[in-house]
């Protein structure tokens, strides 16, 4: 294709569009850019600028007028010069996130959610907000975009060992208030949870973040150190896994120490330092291992009771 002269006005409109896509700009700022661009090198009048903006609007861009509220900036809130998400694209994205759902760490979950949201928000689809809501309803994890600030605040409170008073929506029971020391946020089965030490509980608890109605920091260094001691007091959980080699063993989670059982070499001894026995119980049950709990006895009787209840269901 033979190259020839280019369309000056169209070029100026394209450059205006590019600058506005980077950030909102005032009339003055736009003219400074026009003046310094080597291919333009001149200012334009307010009327000409409106002429350019109208052309962009006609092609589908949404540009707001400068007002005192937006510091007299031209703000480009939408443009269609990007990709269009089709039904097939959405199905592929669903397959993609469902494929990695089980692999996600807390950090991965946050990044994946951010990326997916940006994929929708940057698309040219006019119904992108609706598509985004629909998409998150159909995948196996919740869209927690409305909890961005809460996530940041809880992370900061965990770092600072800050005691919180939490109003929590307990399923089937209603709102309850707990005083807790938040330990960490974690992702499990599609949701974000706060692992915390409650004042009224010996065990650590999991609170689902989207069920937390309100949390208020409480200034109580004494309670903070008391609850921290409660967390530190947890004994190691010792298990014997039958018929499993070191090579075959897959960690059940948490830091653990594994070695062959000195009394029977085909079995393993596993020592876990867990901060949540409920999660360990779930993972142990799902592992399918044949195992024995050596200590603590409380965990042994708990898991034994669960298994007996499960067994009873199938004998009825």
């Amino acid at each position: 294709m033979k190259h020839n002269s280019f369309n000056q006005t169209a070029y100026r409109i394209l450059k205006l569009f590019q600058w506005l896509s980077e950030k909102p700009m005032t009339f003055q700022e736009i003219n400074e850019r026009f003046e310094t661009d080597s291919r333009i090198g001149r200012r334009v009048s307010q009327d000409t600028l409106w002429f350019y903006i109208n052309t962009l609007k006609a092609v589908g861009c949404q540009i707001s007028r400068p007002t005192p509220k937006n510091q007299y900036c031209y703000h480009l809130s939408y443009h269609p010069f990007t990709y269009f998400l089709t039904y097939q694209d959405l199905e592929v994205l669903k397959d993609a996130v469902n494929a990695i759902d089980e692999e996600l760490s807390y950090h991965d979950f946050l990044v994946l959610t951010q990326w997916l949201r940006s994929v929708f928000q940057k698309s040219a689809n006019r119904d992108r907000n609706q598509l985004e809501t629909q998409f998150f309803d159909e995948v196996r994890f919740a869209n927690l975009c409305h909890l961005d600030q809460e996530i940041k605040d809880i992370e900061a409170h965990c770092q600072a060992n800050q005691i919180l008073k939490v109003q929590y929506d307990v399923p089937l029971e209603g709102t309850k208030t707990y005083t807790v020391l938040p330990l960490r946020l974690f992702y499990e089965q599609g949701y974000l949870y706060i692992l915390c030490q409650r004042e009224d509980c010996e065990q650590t608890s999991m609170l689902r973040l989207d069920r937390v109605q309100k949390f208020t920091p409480i200034d109580s260094p004494e309670l903070s150190s008391l609850l921290k001691k409660k967390v530190a007091r947890k004994p190691a959980l010792v298990l014997k896994i039958f018929d499993c080699s070191l090579q075959e063993f897959e960690p059940i989670g948490e830091p653990c120490e594994v070695y062959p059982d000195p009394s029977s070499r085909q079995d393993l001894i596993v020592k876990l330092w867990c901060d949540n026995e409920f999660l360990i119980k779930q993972k142990l049950l799902a592992s399918g291992y044949s195992f024995q709990v050596i200590q603590p006895l409380s965990f042994k009787s708990d898991i034994e009771q669960t298994l007996q209840e499960m067994r009873q269901i199938y004998l009825e």
Binding site: V59, P80, R126
Partner: peptide, 29 residues
């Protein structure tokens, strides 16, 4: 691409040549 011509303000003054070029850009995107 989705064009809602009915949403355009009546009597909107635009640069027709630039409009065509932008439409080609949109198609290519």
């Amino acid at each position: 691409p989705v064009f809602d011509v009915t949403q355009l303000e009546e009597g909107l003054r635009i640069n027709v040549s630039a409009y065509r070029l932008l439409f080609i850009y949109l198609l290519l995107c």
